[in-house]
Design a protein around this nucleic acid. Structure first.
Lengths: 360, 360
DNA sequence: TTGAAAGCGCTACCAG
DNA sequence: CTGGTAGCGCTTTCAA
């Protein structure tokens, strides 16, 4: 069997309590005893069973993260920064992916609840709040990231998605686009709010909102790039063709651009394209892609900070909302002679948004 | 407080044991009693405390995964397929990242050991075996993925990295390259073996190995793309310049290509470039990148299969090694008029290797 | 079919 | 400073 405190206690002729205290740096232990215990612990390479410990303390020092897709660099980046901060505070992060499937998300969250984690951080793909009320009934603190849910007052860290839509669309208007299309995202808050921002920018510029220029997500589990290509195919079949497109995210924009380029469309001359996410490969694409940076790293850091604050506070604090302001990053896909001077805040080189991909 | 079996037992006037049996589908319970218990469980939304359960059963139904970098699509893909398979078998996956830092890797593995996980799956960035001997002493089964360690006989799932190096280099030779360079990876098995394969292919083709054409990883934690650019700068300063480069991985190749293109080098005419990883954005780059597919999804699936086999077997089985054969994927960055007919197996369109990035 | 007793490995509490 | 007692929430074993 594996070593237990009892074994060490017997070896050394001291009580189990003494071992326990030494291991938790409790002061009430004589120096000599402490040395002997530590020596034996090291010799046996002993580690206390954390499951047993958390059973009695009621705390697991485990935080759960649920994301819809680990392959998306945005969530990978969030996971990374989150994990960095938590590790520094003695918490471990257990990451699970819902594969953008509400049923899997529920299943994964149930698992995490059953394991009595100290807190949950969730980028939810659900559209109903029932699951979150259940979490609240279980008294497990949680922080939503990236996506909010209508009718749910909860801790939240994310970007201002209406501002994302406005910023991107206003930029297209500023460079002279007149017929602006939107390849929209799913029915989550991010998808809906970015589209709202898109419409707001058009309205503000006294441009009409053309329904046919808004392409909805196709049902089914196809690859994002392919969906982008399909959406672009639809747009190019319209008359008159749009001269600017705001895509819900960068993978979608990548697929859309590829299709357009393959059809001989010039970007940005015939068609300007902007995405969202500011992914690390944006500036290496066939046409480097303009994008909106959503501060993935900061989202992770703020979510971690908020989680730790909740865990350290005695009484459950009021839900806090952290909304970050998105930033425009201009690259070749929208670099045209401007129709009028751009008023948006422009970041020439992306620094904060660059995602370092380490060497394997 | 949170609900316990005791509470439900008291409510219903039955014993705790009966509840426990119902929840584990034990047959020895009367139908009527079972119904009553299930009804109350549902009503209270009760879930047994898995920490308590695993304390007595000695099994946690938790598998740990340690990767060097979640942001690298290869590891994200592995994590995804692994998680899919394990979830289907009733195991949860707890993912942690070592950030390519041996000390963090040790710390994370210690955490996982202390939590008494059922098994560990590790893509190690360590160069010594001591940590793994410790894991073995703890009797925790583990599976290495992607990277092996010299002097360690252990379960392993990964690609044949010498074959990766040979395949890539032979392809460059086949399309007529005469002065072939290598931007190599770190001192892990992947880095070393791919370079070995590179040298083997040169030797076999009776080309000399020029030391200056092999660029080593710079020390320090710089971004991969930048390292690729820096390596390319070095290569372009040599006389004569290389006419083909095999890069350890695709992010490195991306940085290298960008630099070369910015210097006015034509790819593939002046310089052919091939990477490894077959990442989903390879075909959307300024020059679509030829690459070697290392079957990330299959690595995850095989590692999961192997892990489950170990967990289900009564006695610890002998270490098993699964070595997958890499596949060449040709794109524009090496598409030249061939000097002689290529003999390598060529996949024109990448199907197996395409990595679906879901819509956020 | 049901349940009482014992204990998994650890820590809180309080007595010495 | 030290350590005994009690018990965290659950399952195993075995008797009724």
């Amino acid at each position: 069997m594996t070593t237990r405190m009892k074994d060490i206690a017997k070896d050394l002729g001291v009580s189990v309590m003494t071992i326990s205290k030494v291991l938790r740096n409790h002061p009430d232990v004589g120096d000599e005893t402490r040395e002997r215990v530590l020596a034996r612990v090291k010799e046996l390479d002993y580690q206390p069973n954390l499951a047993a410990r958390s059973l009695v303390t009621g705390r697991s020092y485990l935080v759960g993260l649920v994301v819809p897709d680990l392959l998306h660099p945005f969530f990978a980046e969030v996971a990374k920064s989150l994990s960095d901060v938590l590790r520094g505070s003695g918490f471990s992060l257990i990451i699970s992916s819902s594969e953008e499937d509400p049923a899997i998300e529920e299943q994964e969250i149930n698992q995490l609840l059953a394991r009595r984690l100290d807190a949950l951080i969730i980028a939810s793909c659900r559209s109903t709040v029932d699951l979150f009320f259940r979490i609240e009934r279980r008294k497990t603190p949680y922080v939503l990231i990236d996506r909010t849910l209508p009718g749910l007052t909860a801790n939240f860290v994310g970007v201002d998605d209406e501002a994302v839509g406005r910023l991107a669309t206003k930029h297209l208007i500023d460079i002279g686009c007149k017929r602006i299309a939107h390849i929209r995202g799913p029915e989550t808050s991010t998808g809906v709010h970015r589209m709202d921002g898109f419409k707001q920018a058009l309205t503000q510029a006294r441009l009409t909102i053309v329904d046919a220029y808004i392409i909805s997500e196709r049902k089914g589990d196809v690859e994002t790039k392919q969906r982008g290509a399909e959406a672009m195919r639809q747009l190019l079949s319209l008359k008159p063709r749009p001269d600017g497109v705001f895509c819900f995210n960068d993978p979608l924009a990548m697929g859309a651009m590829n299709y357009a380029l393959d059809q001989g469309i010039r970007i940005p001359e015939d068609l300007a394209v902007i995405g969202c996410g500011n992914l690390h490969y944006d500036d290496s694409l066939r046409v480097p892609l303009s994008s909106i940076d959503q501060h993935s790293r900061q989202i992770g850091e703020q979510a971690a900070r908020l989680t730790l604050a909740i865990l350290h506070s005695k009484v459950p604090p009021k839900p806090e909302t952290v909304v970050l302001q998105p930033q425009l990053v201009v690259r070749a896909s929208t670099r045209r002679r401007p129709a009028k001077k751009t008023t948006a805040r422009v970041v020439k080189r992306d620094i904060s948004g660059s995602i370092p991909t380490k060497l394997r």
